[in-house]
Write a protein that binds this DNA or RNA. Sequence first.
DNA 1: GTAGAACATGGCAGCGCTGCCATCAGGACA
DNA 2: TGTCCTGATGGCAGCGCTGCCATGTTCTAC
Lengths: 356, 356
Amino acid sequence: MADKDALSMRDAALAGRRASAGALAGASSPAGVTLTDVAREAGVGESTASRVLRSHGSFSSKTRASVLEAAARLGYVPNRIAGSLASTGSKLVGIIVPSLANIVFPDLLRGANSVLGKAGFQSVIGVTDYDLEGEEALISSLLSWRPAGLLVAGLEHTPRADAMLRGAGIRIIEMLDTDGTGIDMVVGFSNREAGRAGARHLIARGYRRIGYVGHDLALDLRAAKRFEGFRAALAEAGLQVAGQVIASVPSSIAAGRDALARILGETRDLDAVYFSNDDMAIGGYFLCLSRGISIPDRLALFGHNGLEVARCVPQPLSTIRTPRVEVGEASARLISSDGPPAVITLDFELIEGATT
Amino acid sequence: MADKDALSMRDAALAGRRASAGALAGASSPAGVTLTDVAREAGVGESTASRVLRSHGSFSSKTRASVLEAAARLGYVPNRIAGSLASTGSKLVGIIVPSLANIVFPDLLRGANSVLGKAGFQSVIGVTDYDLEGEEALISSLLSWRPAGLLVAGLEHTPRADAMLRGAGIRIIEMLDTDGTGIDMVVGFSNREAGRAGARHLIARGYRRIGYVGHDLALDLRAAKRFEGFRAALAEAGLQVAGQVIASVPSSIAAGRDALARILGETRDLDAVYFSNDDMAIGGYFLCLSRGISIPDRLALFGHNGLEVARCVPQPLSTIRTPRVEVGEASARLISSDGPPAVITLDFELIEGATT
DNA sequence: GTAGAACATGGCAGCGCTGCCATCAGGACA
DNA sequence: TGTCCTGATGGCAGCGCTGCCATGTTCTAC
């Protein structure tokens, strides 16, 4: 099927090139065609044309045909700015994420966007770079587009951002974190529990000198919560973090590799390392490969997220698969819901790979 | 100007902080505060309030203070829908990409979004899933928001999409591909040349039985162009593709791993494999690690994109670094440019890793 | 054959803002 | 002292569409 589609697409595309030039030349103005023009051309009233183009209300099939034809002939492109103003409700949905550099957030976006698209919404994105002040500015900016709803990653906001969200009068969905109090709807999982699960897994496998390798926790609040849960679970088992290195840069494979190198230099006899996420862990894994450190015999590695690369390395990484796409999808579905505020907790899954 | 705008808004926002809590309770509706309300509250005319809030035109500093204070007190959120309609020009920019699953496109988005954000634009995204019909629908949908410009990945479109783009009367930037004819502005690099460069590199290193491992070329038109260039360069050297496997799924690490396994089964004595991109190549690399196939002695690998993971594996992948973020940035900068149509070619860089 | 419902349609007032024009107070200048 | 210019301000007509209401028109049931 894919092949056939693609083939016909290609033909279509090629044909288009040739034909396009002449077509629009006839139209008076490029994007300046209004509903009034269409109505006049079709010989009907504005309201009727509007009804036909929105398939809303009643009209005869003859009218329908002539309006549609007129619209096509003029190359009419509806103006949703005007439509939204008139109907006071914009089919836009704002999505705010801290970063696009980590595949986690594109995954989230992907899930949300696919559901939103099908429901006729348009996603407007904002990237905070893990800066809550920036988030505040984005919220204010997005709100000015009078979106139908707002999806925001995380539960932490500045006081003003919080106030704006509460006062916005639209559905607000906070994503990826259930450790805290939400404003309206919350969709995610407990990072604290994820951290505990990782720790318990390592403990159950008999590891006792467990180190932590992380990235900037002051910025990545969810990673900080995992670390918290991780430490708590160690404490419950009478253990403590045997050593830690926290890179002061965003998480990345290179950062994980370098940070593991550092912790191995600083802390003797580690038998396992818990990483703030899979990017970092995979970096650690590569370091071990390079140095010939035997995994998991001499060192066990545990990550978080369940990225594809972590599943595909020769020894699949032990990690926790998080339902990122699903969180996006579920969040998007809530935009048009009218129920009371609620928290939706999706399960994460501990993957017992070959690195523990 | 953009900066000044932002500044005054910010002031307003800050002032609002303090007052908001109590004020909002008093305001009739949460987001229902209009410019008229602010003007009345401040004891000035609408136009004056509008001028102050946009830092546009002249007004006394006393007026400025009272308008800002009134806006803050009422928790005013400007309505850009109305603003855009009145000024016939929205600060929205549409960005259309084929996918979010491959980090290449989030990278592109990231570059574009960072520049656009600073210039006061809001990104509206659309994901086509590599489907040109879907792209057409998205273009039509995005155009209805009367964006200031549209960034689209790729040069190939359906005839209708092509016509819509040409007739939109806004800046259209086609990205990531310069092998073909653009509509307005084009920012990217030659995938064909990238393919040739890869082939020439392998040939120069003495490889002669070179295979190709790719993913669905009917969908990923740029990968197809690379393959084309790759074959052309081989032909110029009197060689041909020694064998090929094209996965009928989107590119992924797993797909690359499996496809390399297949080609090794099907084609004897390959000494190098050119992959459609780094994801696929890294999958191949992991297969070699698992099977103990010595790289590059028994098999050389070459990818495309220069992903982080490819740089961090024990033997850095030989590949071509593509300026994805830069393409996004450059494209975004063109949105507000008013020059004539042009093509901006950014350089890719061949990285001689350890796998060739 | 006719009331009443159900369909079809057009007119028009906004949605909240911006852009243009008109107005008016001062100061510079001859 | 009068003229002109500049700065500061308000009034108001739309931007293009939707929602409501009014006006036919056709159909159905008795």
